[in-house]
């Protein structure tokens, strides 16, 4: 996803002289293409994320559209207050790019596991939090950020994330994108790279006679939206799948929609729980440890008594 992002940024920067890329000394073999092509609009500020957020604020104040790039925890949490008092307070179109969201840096250990970023950034009024599901959607999101004036937190994966079947790069602000239409019994709604696991979970559910629908909610708005409510209204059960803690993330958003709109949809929330410290391993190992692998997601649905319509009848 990193490469898709920088490729797209280069493409957009050829026509948009406002685009500026800053890194806090990360992105080896990723950011160089941009630096070579646009040396005046690239800065490696050194290992100094807080300063990077401030510099981006100043650059945005004179008309640039800065993208600040680092590993998700360093981009989002290390300079949380600088993002708040800079782009958010002044409403400036700075895009904070958090690389390796969730467990993408699994073996690197807990300091590199970005599991609170979505909820933390979503708590900032006026911040647009987006976690695209695959490289193609990342590219669409990038273009979409340029069409608006709010600050954005763009949480992307790390390596060559696989395309999510049926997504085809589609993205809308405020709305889930349905990528697989099943029955009205259960919706598997994922954000970020978890969309791949949600699709695989739907395949498993199929073997149990359940044709689940699958949706991607890449944009996590601060409040529930009519588009989300309309989508949820069509299902008896929704399972939210997110590579992060449940506080403030996708399940919070969906739970808020259900509770405040009085929807009859039941919520099953799959996300990260427990303490930060613990055994580490690959992303797939970490997902398994957290019960976020496809088999566990499918099992959660079944454990809640979701049945195929025929069996229920």
């Amino acid at each position: 996803m990193r490469n898709a992002l920088v490729e797209q940024l280069c493409l957009l920067a050829r026509d948009d002289a406002r685009i500026f890329l800053l890194t806090a000394d990360l992105g080896w073999s990723v950011v160089e293409a941009f630096a070579r092509e646009f040396p005046d609009r690239f800065l490696n500020v050194g290992v100094a994320e807080q300063n990077m957020a401030g510099i981006a604020t100043g650059l945005a104040m004179v008309g640039y559209r800065p993208f600040i790039y680092s590993i998700a925890n360093f981009a989002a949490l290390r300079c949380y207050e600088q993002i708040r008092n800079g782009p958010v307070l002044h409403r400036l179109p700075v895009c904070v790019v958090g690389i390796g969201g969730g467990y993408a840096y699994g073996p690197a250990g807990p300091t590199h596991h970005a599991v609170e970023d979505l909820g933390a950034l979503r708590a900032m009024p006026g911040m647009r939090v987006v976690a695209p599901a695959d490289p193609a959607q990342t590219q669409t999101v990038l273009s979409a950020t340029l069409g608006q004036e709010d600050p954005v937190y763009l949480r992307v994966g790390k390596g060559s994330n696989v395309p999510v079947p049926g997504l085809q790069g589609r993205f809308e602000w405020n709305a889930p994108t349905i990528i697989r239409r099943g029955g009205d019994v259960v919706l598997l709604l994922a954000t970020g790279a978890m969309a791949v696991e949600a699709c695989a979970a739907a395949d498993i559910l199929l073997t149990h006679g359940i044709t689940a629908s699958v949706g991607v909610m890449a944009h996590l708005p601060p409040d529930h939206t009519p588009e989300l409510v309309e989508c949820l209204s069509g299902f008896s059960t929704v399972l939210t799948a997110e590579e992060g803690t449940l506080t403030g993330g996708l399940s919070s958003l969906v739970g808020q929609a259900i509770a405040r709109e009085g929807l009859g949809c039941r919520l099953i929330a799959a996300g990260v729980s427990g303490r930060l410290a613990g055994p580490v391993g690959s992303r797939s190992y970490m997902l398994g440890r957290q019960g976020l692998d496809p088999a566990s997601l499918a099992a959660m649905v079944l454990a809640h008594g979701v049945q195929s319509p025929a069996r229920a009848a």
Binding site: L43, Q50, N51, A53, G54, I55, A56, T57, G58, L59, A60, M61, V62, G63, Y64, Q82, G86
Partner: peptide
């Protein structure tokens, strides 16, 4: 001062 640096650079 970081914002001032961004302003000055821009």
């Amino acid at each position: 001062l970081s914002v001032a640096c961004g302003l000055a650079h821009g």
